[in-house]
Design a protein around this nucleic acid. Structure first.
Length: 661
RNA sequence: GCCUCCGUGGCUUAGCGGUAUAGCGUUGCAUUGGUAAUGCAGAGGUCCCGAGUUCGAUUCUCGGCGGAGGCUCCA
């Protein structure tokens, strides 16, 4: 029996096999179909290749394409095919890393810039590699041997060395974990191609049935702008053609929702060369939405005990010297000299509000003080990172600073969280967001305030609070503000790129820098705690993500044009006007389309403009004092009595109901 | 800032060394219409800007500006 082992399957059943049986043979034993479908196996929770020999009693779980591990395995195998094709076409190219990402895979390669038209050539070569159906094999070697094998590639050499010194591999974005210090290193081989890799991989290159290279870009080695610039090639792969086609179709569909396209088409905003980069001009519709969001949050905050401030956008740079912004942030600030003084446009509201706090001596009885301001901020972002309304040089943030006693911190934090949740509820985006606990990186004293003890303490405090409140979050290193850790609310745009929507930050540093104090019950002078928070985020960005999320079909309460009255002919203009006036009087945003166009045309136009309700008025309606309503999904809601319909709409606005198809 | 792609009337687009297509939209008139009606008439482009090559450049070269997607950054 010594050469037999027991394998346990996910359903709990067990079966015995010869010692050293390959994972693929176990799958075949169950069914040929399964063997074809699996990409890798988890043996005792460890991900391995299908040709791995199993030497002891194990629990096995087969990994298919539609699981996270299966996707990763498959995409990464495709990345190897790409790398092999590149080396065949460009023998001088130096491979670096080629991880899996949510949208597929990429490979960073040190080589001359790739033109768009080269991608077709590379794809052809990849197809050859796939057609050759090369067996993929895994090998374990010593560090010495590995260094010898990859001696012509300085990047791989650096990685191999790092692997043995417990350094983090990969870039921050790919989230490669710290590899435990090991004696051995693995590489994979397919045909003439060898690459350093942890695996696992599909067993043959022929499995990569269908793939597409999507785009190229440049990226820096280890994400460091001071290091070599590499060519990054993005792609995605699927086990069959149909799925790839479907995926590419979905990508195209998603791009139709791109706020940068849709927002311009729907006349929310535009840009002008003579105004400048990253400085969008909000047109009436965009301005209305922004104003609604602003009024909404101002009212809501007032209800929740915030007090407003209005502070200047322009300031002497001295203020930011105190706060440390100038040190940590200068590159992204607009700083200029005038009248012999250095001035700047404010990138943040915090120091201004702190000055108001410091206006007089504060008692513990006054706290918490919650200063809020919907403020215009300016950040001199580098040109390449600007994007539509999501990333701009001037934006409006619903900024607030809660100055409180340490014993109030938790309650205040919780209240902020409730506010943020309420806002997301009203916007109907609760399902689309997730929380990110953003921590500092103590190894970067330039980027973060150098006070390890305080960092640790405030991160622990934040963690304690969010754990206690049962917030589900992901932790991320090196994403904090320079003065403290954050809880960010994250959302993706149509390109799958992640952006911060709202943020709540605990600040341990600025109260000190600004020498902020209050007098406690024993007459001691004590440092307050500060929560920085953005409740509805940056209004422009929030608007952009709403446009994308709703494909332009905004919830009634934020919609710039809630209803449009469409007259069947000029004879009914007067009645249309009457209905419009009534609705306006009820506070609804309504337009009258009394053009001499056909009713069909007017309906189509209203639909293209994503107007919530189309109200047709013609002979029937005039007679019955009704309107015939449709919603923007073009669903006919039938004839409605005008007065009761207005009442319904007002109610819908008040309830901030979210549209459903 | 770096890499790739891009820049022709409001939009989509043809063209290419001799100042330019077409469709949609738009304007006016007629038609008074219940899911893009029809007819007639019209307006609208220094082909992103600058320099160079050329007898001549929207077309070729270079530089700039602007846009898109990455990278870095980040609300």
């Amino acid at each position: 029996m010594a050469n037999k082992i027991k394998i346990q399957f996910p359903d709990g059943s067990k079966k015995s096999f010869d010692k050293g049986v390959k994972a693929i043979d176990i799958a075949k034993d169950i069914s040929e179909g399964l063997a074809r479908a699996v990409l890798a196996a988890e043996v005792n929770n460890k991900l391995v290749d299908m040709n791995t020999k199993i030497e002891e009693n194990s629990i096995i779980n087969f990994v298919k394409f539609n699981s996270k591990a299966g996707w990763d395995t498959f995409q990464h195998s495709a990345a190897h095919v790409l790398a092999q094709a590149i080396l065949r076409l460009y023998p001088k190219a130096k491979l670096t890393i080629g991880p899996t990402i949510e949208e597929g895979f990429y490979y960073d390669i040190d080589m001359p810039p790739i033109k768009q038209e080269d991608l077709g050539k590379i794809e052809k070569e990849m197809q050859k590699v796939v057609d050759e159906n090369l067996a993929v094999s895994r090998h374990v070697v010593s560090q010495k041997k590995a260094l010898e094998m990859f001696k012509n590639n300085k990047y791989k050499v650096e990685m191999i060395k790092d692997l043995f010194s417990n350094k983090v591999t990969g870039t921050q974005k790919t989230k490669s974990s710290v590899v435990p210090k090991s004696e051995k290193i693995t590489y994979y081989e397919q045909g003439e191609f060898k690459d350093l890799c942890r695996g696992p991989h599909v067993s043959n290159t022929g499995a990569i049935k269908s793939f597409k290279l999507l785009q190229t870009s440049s990226a820096y080695w280890r994400g460091d702008a001071k290091k070599e610039s590499l060519q990054r090639i993005y792609g995605v792969a699927f086990p069959d053609k149909k799925e790839l086609k479907k995926h590419l179709f979905m990508l195209q569909e998603a791009k139709k929702r791109d706020h940068n396209k849709l927002g311009r088409e729907l006349e929310y905003f535009t840009t002008s060369e003579v105004v400048g980069k990253g400085l969008p001009l909000l047109m009436p519709k965009g301005a209305i939405v922004k104003r609604i969001l602003q009024r909404f949050i101002e009212d809501e905050e007032e209800k929740r005990g915030y007090v407003p401030t209005i502070t200047p956008v322009l300031t002497k740079s001295d203020l930011y010297k105190i706060s440390g912004h100038l040190d940590h942030y200068r590159e992204s600030m607009f700083v200029f000299e005038t009248n012999g003084e250095e001035m700047c446009l404010r990138p943040m509201t915090c120091p201004h509000q702190f000055m108001i706090y410091k206006f007089k001596k504060r008692s513990y009885r006054e706290l918490p003080i919650r200063y809020s301001e919907v403020s215009e901020l300016f950040r001199n972002e580098t040109s390449g990172e600007l994007h539509g309304l999501i990333r701009v040089r001037q934006f409006t943030l619903s900024d607030a600073h809660i100055i409180c006693r340490p014993d109030q911190l938790e309650k205040e934090f919780e209240d902020v969280l409730h506010l943020v949740e309420y806002v997301m509820d009203c916007l109907g985006i609760k399902e689309q967001v997730w929380y990110r606990f953003s921590k500092g990186d103590l190894s970067k004293p330039d980027k973060y305030i150098d006070n390890p003890k305080a960092w640790k303490q405030s991160e622990a405090t934040l963690k304690k609070i969010i754990d206690k409140l049962g917030v589900k979050y992901v932790e991320e290193e090196d994403e904090a503000a320079f003065y403290g850790p954050k809880l960010d609310v994250q959302m993706k745009n149509v390109y799958g790129k992640e952006d911060t929507l709202f943020t709540i930050q605990i600040d341990f540093a600025l109260p000190e820098k600004f020498d902020m104090t209050y007098t406690d019950e024993k007459s001691n002078s004590v440092r307050p705690m500060i929560i920085h928070r953005a409740s509805i985020g940056c209004l422009e960005r929030t608007m952009a993500l709403l446009i994308e999320h709703y494909a332009g079909k905004m919830p009634l309460w934020v919609s710039p044009i809630q209803a449009r009255i469409l007259t069947v002919s000029e004879k009914f203009t007067k009645y249309g006007q009457e209905v419009k006036d009534k609705m306006r009087a009820a506070g609804l945003r309504v337009e009258l389309d009394d053009r001499t166009e056909s009713i069909g045309k007017k309906i189509r136009d209203a639909q293209l403009e994503k107007i919530n309700y189309m109200l047709v008025v013609g002979e029937r309606e005039v007679k019955d004092k009704t309107v015939t309503a449709r919603n923007f999904f073009n669903k006919v809601l039938g004839a409605k009595k005008v007065d009761s319909f207005i009442k319904d709409l007002v109610k819908e606005v008040d309830e901030k109901r979210i549209p459903k198809e």
